[in-house]
Amino acid sequence: MSGPEQIRVAVVDDQELMRSALRMMVESQSDFTFAGEGVDGLDALALVRSRRVDVVLMDLRMPRIDGIQATATITAEQPECRVIALTTFDLDDYAFRALRAGASGFLLKDARSEEIVDAVRTVHAGHGVIAPSTTRRLIEHIAAGPDPDAARAAEVRGTLTPREFDTLLEIATGDTNREIAERLHLSEATIKTHVGHVLAKLGLRDRVQAVVLAYETGLVGPPRR
């Protein structure tokens, strides 16, 4: 019998100690393969252009090309490659910009190894990950920004069926398909289908981008002053 599918993980961080710790974490997992490492965004681009990389663990604050610019380029050039943004700061502007650039996840560097490992598997499966401790701050960050994009909100409503629109609002809660299914009294398989339709129709990579879109357009979110 063949073993589990190997997830090829690259590590990009300008701190040698952090790179070493992440590499050890990757190499300790039977279903992970270490795909290389780099010290900045230029190295990240070289890695994904020269070999197959499924997930990049990407520092955001780096010299030459930072993690945000590298993330935007990678997600544009390599749609199948997922990026998890790592930062020391609890949802500073860099982290939010990385999510908008196409990162499928955001975690703090002090996250436990198990959390990072789970995040790699989750984004590789096509889902998004935001550290639970920072979800509230993400919402506040978006709510404090410019007025919602009403035109985009109307476009979203017109693109989705009523059930798909309800599913988008549920995705924005951050809950899993199972939790959403229980709340809407539908099967998990049905919710998974609806989620796939929402992402495809709106041109979104994953659930993280769906959350950002829902809040930026004002479809969901705290009351604005």
Rank of each mutant, 00 (worst) to 15 (best):
E27V: 13
E27A: 05
Q29I: 03
S30A: 12
S30T: 12
D31L: 08
F32K: 07
F32N: 07
F32C: 08
F32M: 08
F34Q: 06
F34G: 07
A35D: 08
G38I: 07
V39E: 15
D40G: 12
D40L: 13
G41N: 10
G41V: 09
D43G: 14
D43K: 07
D43R: 02
A44C: 12
A44F: 06
A44R: 08
L45K: 03
L45Q: 06
A46L: 04
L47Y: 03
V48N: 04
R51G: 11
R52T: 14
V55L: 05
V55K: 02
V56L: 06
V56Q: 04
L57D: 10
L57T: 09
L57C: 07
L57R: 12
L57Y: 08
M58Q: 11
R61W: 00
P63K: 12
R64K: 14
I65D: 01
G67A: 09
I68L: 00
I68E: 00
T71W: 00
T73I: 13
I74T: 02
I74C: 01
A76N: 02
E80A: 11
R82V: 11
L91P: 02
D92Q: 14
D92H: 13
Y94G: 00
Y94I: 00
A95G: 12
F96A: 06
F96W: 11
R100K: 15
G102K: 01
F106A: 12
K109A: 06
K109E: 09
D110C: 03
A111V: 10
A111E: 11
A111D: 06
R112K: 13
E115F: 04
I116C: 04
D118S: 13
D118W: 08
D118I: 03
A119Q: 11
V120I: 15
V123Y: 06
V123T: 13
H124Y: 14
H124K: 14
G126T: 05
G126M: 03
G126P: 08
H127N: 15
H127F: 15
G128D: 11
I130F: 07
S133W: 04
S133T: 14
R136W: 02
R137K: 15
R137C: 01
E140G: 09
H141C: 05
H141N: 06
